[in-house]
Amino acid sequence: MEKNNVKKNIIWFIENFGDRVAKRVEQTPLTLSFVASIAVHETGYIWSNIRKSVSTEEEFLELCVGDKLGWDAGRSYFPAKKKTLLDAPNGPKMYKIARDVLKKAAAVNPKTFGSYFHDSDNILFGYGIFQYDLLFYNEGDSQYFLEKGWMDFDRCLEKAIEEMLLAAEFLGYDRDSNEKISNYDLALIGAIYNGGSKDYDPLRGLKQIRWIKWAQKYYGELIYQYMNIADAVIGGQNGNKRYLVNARSGLRLRAGPSVKFDVLKLVPFGTSLALLGYGGSGNAWAQVDLENDGVADGFVFSEFLREA
């Protein structure tokens, strides 16, 4: 997704859902920028056509679906096969719902879903603006799918927030704290939210779990980039502050918030940059934007920055 489209989608999401999201995350360590970034990545690529085709929020949310793996893609979790779904409680009803929704989605976004719908008996596996996986149908949440709960934004949001908070707890954060997490660690939470914690490696930073082929980046890296754009849109903490490099020999710009990460370049003395957030041990590393476009370029040691 091009950066301009990302920004447009973030603006649209915040205008339509921002107040409800901000209220829900107020007493959590999550942020509006993070939740908006997850939504934009998961389904933002299909929003434009949906918005042109429907007139209500419920109709829009109904068509926020995805994950077109197909029955022969080797899916290892429920429902791995069509028969598995049909044999589940109310399985035939769920299968019909899934096919009907895919048919509607294909009519609105034919380039994305058209051929997939017409290919035998495919269904989609992700439902809602944040993509709640159909595997949860078999884990005590069948009513949510049978009732098409993803058409209700508050229900959809609650599912996503719970998954996000579980990922935050996995990384050692208190889900009941309202002390906000840095964008960098939120991006790690996003990676776990999307791909699970099984393969998480703390030494790999954002370069892990799920590779996004079209972007040639990992999921966490994209969420990290989107959050910085969202922060600039919202005008959040540190979003508009500019600083100068105050080290005579310059500052090393690193790929992550510690000396363990690769040096990307040397930022010369006196360079003006935007401060996007903090990360690393003691939040000693500043996440910076060198090109004033809301996108993070890397980290520098914050002690050698001064306000412009």
Results as ranks from 00 to 15, higher is better:
107 A>E: 14
89 P>M: 04
207 K>C: 09
186 L>Y: 01
202 P>V: 12
104 K>P: 02
142 S>N: 13
114 G>M: 12
190 G>M: 06
122 N>E: 08
175 R>N: 01
183 N>P: 03
206 L>P: 02
89 P>I: 02
125 F>W: 12
102 L>V: 02
77 Y>E: 11
194 N>I: 12
177 S>F: 13
153 F>N: 04
161 I>K: 03
113 F>W: 03
168 A>E: 05
73 A>K: 13
121 D>W: 10
174 D>K: 14
98 A>S: 12
82 K>G: 02
202 P>M: 09
143 Q>A: 11
143 Q>N: 11
154 D>K: 11
83 K>S: 11
75 R>A: 13
176 D>M: 15
172 G>W: 14
193 Y>T: 08
104 K>Y: 03
112 T>S: 13
84 T>H: 10
103 K>Q: 08
157 L>I: 02
200 Y>R: 10
134 L>T: 00
153 F>E: 02
99 R>D: 03
71 W>C: 02
133 D>G: 07
116 Y>R: 09
122 N>K: 10
123 I>M: 05
173 Y>L: 12
132 Y>T: 07
121 D>H: 14
119 D>L: 06
166 L>S: 15
151 M>C: 08
108 V>S: 10
153 F>Y: 12
111 K>T: 11
134 L>M: 09
121 D>V: 12
145 F>P: 05
184 Y>R: 14
74 G>Y: 13
80 A>P: 03
114 G>K: 10
200 Y>D: 01
81 K>V: 04
148 K>Q: 11
136 F>H: 05
145 F>S: 00
129 I>E: 07
203 L>V: 15
164 M>F: 01
203 L>P: 06
181 I>W: 01
195 G>S: 12
84 T>V: 09
152 D>Y: 03
162 E>S: 15
133 D>Q: 12
160 A>I: 01
84 T>C: 12
97 I>N: 05
175 R>I: 00
98 A>K: 07
168 A>I: 07
202 P>I: 10
108 V>H: 14
103 K>P: 01
163 E>T: 15
167 A>K: 06
111 K>E: 10
182 S>A: 11
150 W>L: 03
201 D>W: 05
137 Y>N: 07
161 I>C: 09
179 E>D: 15
110 P>N: 01
118 H>L: 13
174 D>T: 05
143 Q>T: 13
145 F>H: 01
175 R>Q: 11
143 Q>E: 11
119 D>V: 01
143 Q>F: 03
97 I>P: 05
203 L>N: 15
74 G>S: 07
204 R>W: 05
130 F>S: 00
96 K>V: 07
192 I>V: 10
109 N>M: 03
176 D>S: 15
203 L>M: 15
189 I>N: 00
161 I>R: 06
119 D>S: 08
190 G>F: 06
194 N>T: 14
199 D>H: 13
93 K>C: 07
107 A>N: 12
115 S>Q: 13
158 E>K: 12
165 L>P: 00
134 L>P: 00
187 A>S: 14
81 K>P: 00
161 I>T: 09
198 K>G: 06
151 M>F: 01
140 G>P: 03
188 L>P: 02
169 E>L: 08
157 L>G: 01
102 L>G: 04
183 N>K: 04
205 G>Q: 00
124 L>Y: 04
